[in-house]
Structures are given as C-alpha cells and as structure tokens.
C-alpha cells in the first residue's frame, strides 16, 4: 500500500507557544485513522498544521509524496490553497461555512479545482448519496440550517474534491449523540480507495470498530503508538 501522509519531526504552535512537539506519523492509503485525545492536547493543531494553518511550524509533511509542510514562521493559511489543491480536504471545527451561500453553491465550491469543477454535477450526486438529507436542502442558504445539517454540508464539501487525505476535526462536536453516530457511520461507510482519512475525536467509543487504527495524542505528542499499547495489553491479560 502506498503512503498518503508521512509526517516527520513536526513541531508547530502559535506565537511563543509550542503545541506539537516533534510528531511523527505515517498514514497509508485506505487507512481510516482515529486521532483521540483530550481537549487542548493538539488534535486540531495537528490537523491544522497539515493544512498549514498554524502560526508557525517546522518539520516535514509529505502528502502523497509531495512535500507540503516546509518550515515557516508566519502567514497562517498562506499556502493552504496549494496544499488543498495537492489533495487535502480539511473539515475543520466550526465547519468554516459560507453563511450566505446555498447548499448547492457550497458543494460546488468544494469542487473548486479546475478539473473537479467540470465534473461537479456527478460528484454532487455522489455526495448526496452519502448524505441523503441534503437533497431537499440544496437551495437553502447554509446560515439557516441546523448544526447537524451544517456539519453534513461541510463534510460534503470536503468530499467533493479529489482529496487523497481527508482530515475531519471533531465530527461529533456540538451535535446530539444520535446525529453524531449517524455522521460517523456515514464517514466510515465511505469507500476510500487510494485515499486515507484521519478523524480527530474526543469521544473514543464513537470511533471504536469504525477505524482501522486509533492513535492517542497527549501533550502535543503521539502517544506510544498503537503497537506499544497492544504489546503491553496482550501480555497483561
């Protein structure tokens, strides 16, 4: 299996604050990785660092074999659009939604890259198959939708592009348990093919059984790694 993401020695932070400390992480194609950890331990920062949205960062991030995470000390978001065009889709906390645009506009904006734009109608069908609830809402401005519908729109927007790597930040945040269950189920049903998905989530039971592996993040470091946790567990019980 080919590698989609390889992070080596990534440190990142905001101003004088270092949030991520020398993180190493490799994600192969077809993998669905759960990134779990408490509030404020760097889950979102890791995802934002991959998208180039942190205050500063250093270390290497290779997305589908291309270096996208050069060391930089300023300009959060300056290169984000290039990283996105290289095959990243980040569905951030708070959805980064365009309030005045309709759901249809929204989904189209996800297919912004030139190649995807021509193909947008077919892609929209595909997304609507994953989130059928959006079908009826296509002409409604997103500002009028409920939290769950907004999250679906945001996720759908991310799925419109040909992303090699899907980053989903806290899909359950602020939603009723049943809705977040449905969302995560829909996410785990997506056919990944040669792309990969990272879901950052606080609620571990929500992800159990729905991801290929689970990684803990603690105080800005990937903790232990799945292998070490497994080894100790096998020998103990």
């Amino acid at each position: 299996m080919s590698e989609v993401l390889r992070i080596g020695g990534l440190s990142a932070g905001y101003g004088p604050l270092t949030v991520l400390h020398s993180v190493n992480l490799t994600v192969a194609a077809g993998e669905r990785v759960g990134l779990v950890g408490l509030n404020g331990h760097g889950k979102s920062t890791l995802l934002r660092a991959i998208a180039g949205l942190t205050g500063w960062q250093s270390g290497s991030i290779r997305l589908a074999g291309r270096e996208v995470g050069s060391t930089r000390s300023q300009g959060p978001g300056r290169y984000t659009h290039r990283i996105v065009r290289a095959g990243l889709a980040l569905m951030p906390q708070g959805d980064a939604i365009f309030h005045g645009l309709t759901v249809a506009d929204h989904l189209d904006s996800g297919a912004y890259t030139r190649a995807a734009w021509r193909d947008r109608r077919r892609r929209r069908e595909r997304v609507l198959a994953i989130f059928p609830a959006l079908e009826k809402l296509l002409d409604v401005p997103v500002g009028r939708l409920s939290g769950g519908e907004r999250r679906m729109t945001s996720l759908g927007r991310g799925l419109m592009a040909d992303a090699r790597l899907l980053l989903i930040d806290e899909p359950s945040l602020g939603l009723a348990p049943r809705i977040s269950q449905e969302l995560v189920a829909a996410l785990s049903a997506i056919e990944l093919g040669d792309s990969a998905m990272i879901i950052a989530e606080q609620n571990i039971p929500l992800l159990q059984g729905r991801v290929t592996r689970m990684l803990g993040i603690h105080a800005g470091r990937i903790k232990g790694g799945a292998e070490a946790v497994q080894l100790a567990g096998v020998n103990l019980h």
Partner: peptide, 14 residues
C-alpha cells in the same frame, strides 16, 4: 524574539 525562541526550542527538541 519570543516567536524565534520558541521555534528554536522546538528545533532543539527535534
């Protein structure tokens, strides 16, 4: 200076 120091510390950490 604070930002540069922080980045420098992060490098040492690496």
């Amino acid at each position: 200076r604070d930002r540069k120091r922080s980045e420098h510390r992060a490098k040492r950490d690496i």
